[in-house]
Amino acid sequence: MPAGVNAETAIVRWLASSTRDPKSAHRDWEDGRPAILALGVLFDAVKAPSRLVHAAVDSSERSAVAVVLGQLGGPVIWAPSTWYAILVPAGTAADWDSPHAAAMGHGTYLTVPRLDRVEPPGIHWAVPPAHARTLCSPVAVAQLLDLGHQSQGLSR
Rank of each mutant, 00 (worst) to 15 (best):
A3C: 10
V5K: 14
V5F: 10
N6C: 06
E8T: 12
E8S: 15
A10V: 11
S18T: 14
R20L: 15
R20Q: 14
D21Q: 13
P22T: 02
P22Y: 02
A25T: 13
E30M: 07
E30Y: 08
R33N: 12
I36A: 13
I36Q: 14
L37V: 04
L37W: 03
V41G: 10
V41E: 11
L42R: 10
A45N: 09
A45G: 04
K47S: 11
K47A: 12
A48V: 09
P49R: 13
S50R: 07
R51V: 07
L52M: 11
V57C: 02
V57Y: 04
D58M: 10
S60I: 01
R62V: 12
A64Q: 13
V65P: 02
A66P: 03
V67F: 13
V68F: 00
G74L: 01
P75Q: 01
V76D: 02
I77S: 03
W78D: 09
P80I: 04
A85Y: 06
A85W: 05
A85S: 11
I86Y: 04
L87Y: 04
A90F: 09
A90V: 09
T92I: 08
A94Y: 07
D95E: 12
D95P: 00
W96F: 03
W96V: 02
W96A: 03
W96H: 00
S98L: 01
P99F: 07
H100F: 10
A102M: 11
L110G: 01
T111V: 08
T111E: 11
V112K: 01
P113M: 01
R117V: 00
R117T: 00
R117A: 12
V118S: 07
E119M: 05
P120F: 00
P121F: 00
W125F: 06
A126E: 12
V127A: 02
V127D: 06
P128E: 03
A130F: 00
H131I: 01
A132R: 02
T134V: 15
T134R: 15
T134I: 09
L135G: 01
V139A: 08
V139G: 08
V139E: 10
A140L: 15
V141W: 06
V141E: 09
A142S: 04
L144A: 08
D146F: 10
S151R: 15
S151I: 07
S151G: 15
G153N: 08
G153K: 05
S155F: 11
S155A: 13
